[in-house]
Amino acid sequence: MEVLNPHTLEEALQAKAEHPDAVPIQGGTDVMVELNFDRRRPEVLLNLNEVGELRGWSRENGTLRLGSGLTYTEAMEAPLAELLPALAEASRTVGSPQIRNRGTIGGNLGTASPAGDALPPLLVEGAEVELASTRGVRRVALHEFLVGPKRNAAEPDELIAAVRVAPSGGQQTFMKVGPRNAMVIAVCSLAVVADRERGELRASFGSSGPVAGLVSCPLDEAASLPELVVEAASPIDDVRGTAAYRRHALGVLARRALERCLA
């Protein structure tokens, strides 16, 4: 086993091109659990912590560029939290302070879990994923990037460089169902935004299908949203909850979200 420690994005992309099997590691909150329990023994680990270009966020005209190394703790801080309030709410529900200090948005996309809490808030805001390789940079809509449970559209030589999102400025919220406030993998979750500019409501649900789902309806048909969400969901019975409970809970969350977003 070997650890590569690039210090620039260029070095990191070079390393990934030379070692397409290398497993990137940022916060390590998913990767380390696999290593500690010997579920995975990659030949090469690609440590991205020293790559400055992946950290923080920036604003270009109306678009935000969130570095893939942006932590949940950073996403909870103003002014970013005011620009993407649902992402900030979702971030606050992730794990514990220790997990939020290390865990990153890029890592959540990399893992592409149906329960990933950063995904619904980014989906309702129409986020794009910036994938980089020595071949160049391409942008993929987040809903196309998530191709299946724990599967994403990145090629073996690509790294997730950033997430791009143009905040709608609409009232929005994120809600998550689980047995306690901290340390909970969502039983189900829901993000909703009321985009007044486009006259549209968008909702995205987590832990209720193979990937986080996305639905929308005109603002003046708001009353139909809960049913749209419940119909689009395809939950299963598992250790965290039953499909029937998840459907019921999503309907309740959607009605509450409407109260919050249309107030």
Binding site: I25, G27, M32, V33, N36, G95, Q98, N101, R102
Partner: peptide, 28 residues
């Protein structure tokens, strides 16, 4: 060893983290 209990909490560059979820090589 999976970030759930916090008994391995340390400060890494002044930030509270679970030492079990940091690769030793990342602390270099």
């Amino acid at each position: 060893e999976q970030g759930e209990c916090g008994s391995c909490s340390v400060l890494l560059d002044g930030t509270l983290v679970c030492a079990c979820l940091v690769l030793a090589a990342q602390a270099d």
